[in-house]
Write a protein that binds this DNA or RNA. Structure first.
Lengths: 267, 267
DNA sequence: GAACCAGGTATCATTATATAATACCTGATA
DNA sequence: TATCAGGTATTATATAATGATACCTGGTTC
């Protein structure tokens, strides 16, 4: 256990460009609560020294990846970050395949509809169609959440073979968002078992107290889910039962309609 | 004019980290038509040599910025690109301020609504609420277009003082998208003059043949627009006149409602 | 209004680190 | 089996990144 050697494994490879990796750390220093950072703040958040941050931030600025407020000298994400999302969208076939169906769904329900994909042990929202003065409007596209803590994640996990499912339930991360967020893995196992039987997952108050969420898996040809259609509804005007009776069937139809589309160019 | 010295100006500065800039070039090599690239394709598109691309792509892969198909060995944008968009959204106050109003607008019109921001001599779409089986659905968030060629851009330019306006009309770039895209700067001047008088811009078939687009500026406290609310309508079911009578007023109300909000924390 | 300080900017010697040439694999095609 | 394109690995070399330090600037304190 060479604890001193700092950069071991793949990183101490001549194929690893450290400066690039450090630059990326600056980009990742920005999040919900850090929307604008100064040089020293960047240094603190990345653990890099002042000089390094100076050079890297300057480079990112020149290259148009960071905007700089000329008076405060603070840095912000630039429009280029959205251009990257644009490129991402074109590279993800699912997004294009799903969009028309999601629009139909959202119009017919009059409720907010999200498309989530699995990203390791997390899920990430790749598309959102907001409807109704979405109280919990908020920005969601690109948000990454522990799979176990979301209805989308549970709906997806439920499609995995029993051993993988169990492994996920035991080891994947959890995060507490509200007072009602389930942190007990046994409860989560029940919830996922239910999803295995019913083919969908439903949860209340996991992310936001007043929210009911239903999610149905989008499956690949082997039946494994790699994505999910999810619908968020206000618990103020809906009950669990009404959601299952009125919302769920259409969400499920949409998810199924998207599913078989895995007829990409590949045997 | 030292034509040989390759990296002059700001780039031949010790504050410029070339490796980072090169890495960013790889990211930017992906677009609508290049959604998945191999090493050699990356080398071609970036102008870097094979070895450099190998190292940089490898680094980006290790850092989670590029996904690699283990069988084809081709690279793709990763989910991290969406996470960057997520961070961008939080850093852009306008997005949060505008969203609820845009949702209302979209619901009341039943038509696709977009939010565009100015980005130098281009505009970029920062938010979109798709409605109706948007024929021209397509992904739009993050798309960057010449300001002069879009209704949003023209609506914004129209709020600038006459000299800046003229400068824009004469020098900013144009791009032809359809047979009907205006490439004549005199016509564009007419269109912008009209927008100056009326306070909004309307155009047909600029981006897509069957599309009518209306845009209203979102102004800062000095009256200059930095963004616009835009609505895209199918020319198959609507006429220019009906759009002006029925759609426009509500788009304008929305844009105005968003405008004064420049009451950020700042004197 | 002088002294102080935090944070941004600029400079520079030093060598770590990125480089590009080259050789080596692999798997597809003929 | 031969050929080839494209991906992977290695290495000597010097370029280009490093981080310490010094210099500005503008805001705050007494």
């Amino acid at each position: 256990m060479q604890s001193r050697g700092k950069r071991l494994d793949k990183k101490q490879n001549t194929l690893y460009v450290g400066s690039l990796a450090k630059g990326l750390r600056l980009l990742r220093a920005f999040d919900e609560t850090h929307t604008e950072l100064s040089l020293v703040e960047l240094a603190q958040r990345t653990g890099l020294d002042k000089s390094a941050v100076q050079r890297l931030a300057n480079t990112l600025h020149i290259e148009g990846m960071l905007d700089k407020n000329p008076v405060t000298r603070r840095f912000r994400p630039s429009h280029a970050w959205l251009e990257l999302a644009y490129a991402y969208y074109w590279s993800d076939q699912l997004v294009g395949q799903a969009l028309p169906k999601l629009i139909d769904l959202s119009q017919s329900l009059g409720e907010t509809v999200n498309l989530a994909e699995r990203s390791g042990d997390h899920i990430i929202y790749v598309n959102r169609l907001p409807c109704q003065r979405t109280y919990f409007a908020a920005t969601v596209i690109g948000r990454r959440l522990p799979a176990l803590s979301t209805s989308s994640g549970r709906a997806m996990i439920a499609t995995l073979p029993a051993d993988e499912r169990e492994e996920a339930i035991r080891t994947w991360p959890l995060k507490k968002f509200t007072a009602r967020t389930t942190m007990d893995r046994t409860s989560i196992r029940h919830s996922i078992d239910e999803a295995v039987e019913k083919g969908y997952a439903i949860s209340s108050g996991q992310m936001i107290l007043s929210e009911i969420a239903v999610a149905c898996p989008i499956r690949d040809p082997n039946g494994r889910a790699f994505a999910a259609v999810q619908c968020s509804i206000s618990a103020h005007t809906w009950t669990h039962e009404r959601v299952e009776a009125e919302i769920l069937p259409r969400v499920q139809d949409t998810a199924n309609a998207i599913s078989p589309a895995s007829q990409a160019h590949r045997g």
